[in-house]
Design a protein around this nucleic acid. Structure first.
Lengths: 200, 200
DNA sequence: TCTAAAAAATACCGATTGGTATTTTTTAGA
DNA sequence: TCTAAAAAATACCAATCGGTATTTTTTAGA
């Protein structure tokens, strides 16, 4: 076979790619096996040949969705020349849900965290890890900016990181539920102000 | 009968009170009729005698939950002597989830907004209305504070209101999913700073 | 205390749920 | 090209889903 991926690996990937949007929109309990078979055109036998159960598909879907957002942001951060602009990427990426490359159903972190926090420990844990990783990334960017002389010293990096994440995720929730994308933009202005504040 | 509430009204209220926490934790799709009968000790016949369907129970549960939070906040705001302190109520009420009187499962606005935004238009609309009402309340408090000479003029009230809501809701999400209530407190510090900024 | 109405329980419905055992088809290397 | 293994489809399972029609019980006013 010329393909480097085995048939099983390709099918697994196909299932995850085609169902990731469904899980992100409908949540774990709201997504049924028949949703998955309808979307993929595969049968239950095929899906259960590649995944242990529904939960394993949901976890893979979440990891696929969150990796998508992470890569999207990482690519922009790498391009940004200054630490200020690197931090601003967060405010820009989410701007008005310019979400051509954003997962269907909105932010998978928010969706999975709220969906799973009282019902599915495994998914909850995955979402928590992604949040903590995001927090750490922001903190490191701020610290690096301080070292580079771009930012003032004495910044409460944890407070800033958590506030940025809260603003973005809360802003997404508001924008989605009210159907007003501009509401997110308003909130992102505060993210902007938060970062600009400690610029030298 | 000495009771001012009819039997039907009392049962309806009983069902809503005893199931509101379940809907808030498990979401609409994740809550089954048997969850409701188990929790109430009633049968399906009784529940469907008082509600048209599961959706109607869920809507009543959301309204009950959100009214609880609204009343809790309104009571504190009324007690606060200054507009600054009135605005600060939001930061205080959510502090460390001092949530003895807070609904089971966390903030019903966040839960319902995320749960329903892609799946249940009726519930989504209810959540949207509550968010918009909250936004308006904050805006009015700020405007009144300006008139009272407590706050500077030229404040972008909409931006502040949306940012406060986003910080609180996003902070709740972070705190719940990571299991770290202090993370919400960190975020609430930013709410505090946001309001303090335009104090005269 | 009697009684009609209201409320709750019972019993049932077809459809769908997540999951599995078995058979058929496809794959890919020898 | 043949073949064994892997993958997918078929057929099935009991349990549960949301909802309804009917019967029994409770309510509350006359």
């Amino acid at each position: 076979m010329e393909n480097e991926l085995s048939k099983a690996e390709r099918t697994r990937q196909f299932i995850v790619e085609t169902t990731s949007g469904i899980f992100n929109k409908k949540g774990y309990a709201g997504t049924s096996l028949s949703d998955l078979t309808e979307a993929t055109g595969l049968t239950k036998g095929s899906i259960y040949g590649n995944f242990k159960n529904k939960e394993e598909v949901a976890v893979a879907a979440f990891e696929y969705n969150s990796a998508r957002v992470r890569k999207l942001i990482a690519a922009q951060i790498e391009k940004a020349p200054t630490y200020y602009e690197k931090l601003m990427v967060y405010a820009k990426v989410y701007h008005s849900f310019n979400s051509a490359s954003f997962p269907d159903g909105g932010c998978p972190i928010l969706n999975t965290a709220v969906d799973a926090d009282d019902t599915n420990p495994l998914l909850k844990n995955k979402a928590a890890q992604v949040v903590l990783r995001w927090k750490k990334n922001i903190e490191e960017l701020i610290s690096a900016g301080v070292v580079a002389g771009e930012f003032k010293t004495g910044i409460d990096t944890e407070k800033i990181a958590l506030s940025m994440i809260a603003l973005i995720e809360g802003g997404i929730m508001i924008a989605k539920v009210t159907g007003k994308p501009v509401y997110l933009d308003e909130v992102l202005k505060t993210v902007n102000a938060l970062v600009t504040e400690f610029k030298v």
